[in-house]
Write a protein that binds this DNA or RNA. Structure first.
Length: 219
DNA sequence: AACCAGGAGACAT
DNA sequence: ATGTCTCATGGT
């Protein structure tokens, strides 16, 4: 089955997703770090804390002391390490001069720059590139691996870069790649939450005709 | 009451 | 290059 076919089925079933759920590019960046291996609802609580403290700015996060920041981040889990990572990111972001100078970089240069921040790995970097900078990178996450390996379209043991290139190459000829990659990743997350968790819930799954996992829970 | 959630880094091998 | 640990809250 082609990647385009999976996309069409997901879109027809779930509709447009309107991602990323954030009001500004900087909020996307913060959410990208806080969402590492964490349920999104918990991320929202932490971001609400930052907003309530008027601290959802790179300056505020860079300047506040560790314990205060960690307390705001508490609901999103890993609050000590995420406080460090967020501070790392904000110090770097301010040192670069903020959004505009970074936005002037090429896709490749920007990705390399964002990845240089300690605490920003490949998925977090690609969240930031796609959803904050509108660059055509395909985000790979645990859901993507799970769904497409269950469909038999990828090997589960493939590394991040291998998978990213596979998706980007498979969708190379599509028009409006940024909008497509944006919507595709969001649809993957919505689909995983409803039907493709660790223990699959295949009843009503729009991909079940082609998914071997349906045998686990006949639907 | 285990299991899971929109990962990444440090470290050893 | 690849495998194992750690980090931690909140919902199911």
């Amino acid at each position: 089955m082609r990647l385009q076919t999976v996309y069409r089925r997901l879109f027809d079933h779930y509709g447009p997703q309107q991602w990323w759920p954030a009001e500004t590019p900087f909020e996307v960046m913060v959410g990208a770090v806080l969402s590492q291996n964490t349920a999104w609802g918990n991320v929202e609580r932490a971001i609400a804390n930052l907003k309530a403290a008027s601290a959802l700015t790179p300056e505020a996060i860079a300047q506040v002391d560790h314990d205060t920041l960690a307390a705001w981040l508490r609901p999103s889990g890993y609050f000590n390490i995420k406080a460090k990572r967020l501070k790392n990111y904000c110090h770097w972001y301010l040192a670069q001069g903020g959004f505009a100078p970074l936005d002037a970089l090429s896709d490749k240069a920007l990705r390399h720059a964002v990845l240089s921040v300690n605490g920003v790995g490949p998925e977090t970097a690609d969240d930031i590139l796609l959803y904050a900078f509108q660059r055509p990178v395909f985000v790979i996450d645990a859901y993507t691996r799970r769904i497409f390996s269950r469909l038999g379209l990828i090997a589960q043991e493939s590394g991040y870069e291998t998978l990213r290139r596979h998706f980007e190459a498979g969708l190379q000829r599509e028009p409006r790649r940024v909008a497509l990659f944006n919507e595709y990743h969001a649809l993957i997350v919505s689909h995983a939450k409803e039907h493709c968790r660790v223990t699959p819930r295949c009843n009503g799954c729009p991909l079940r005709r082609d998914c071997p996992a349906r045998a686990v829970e006949p639907g």
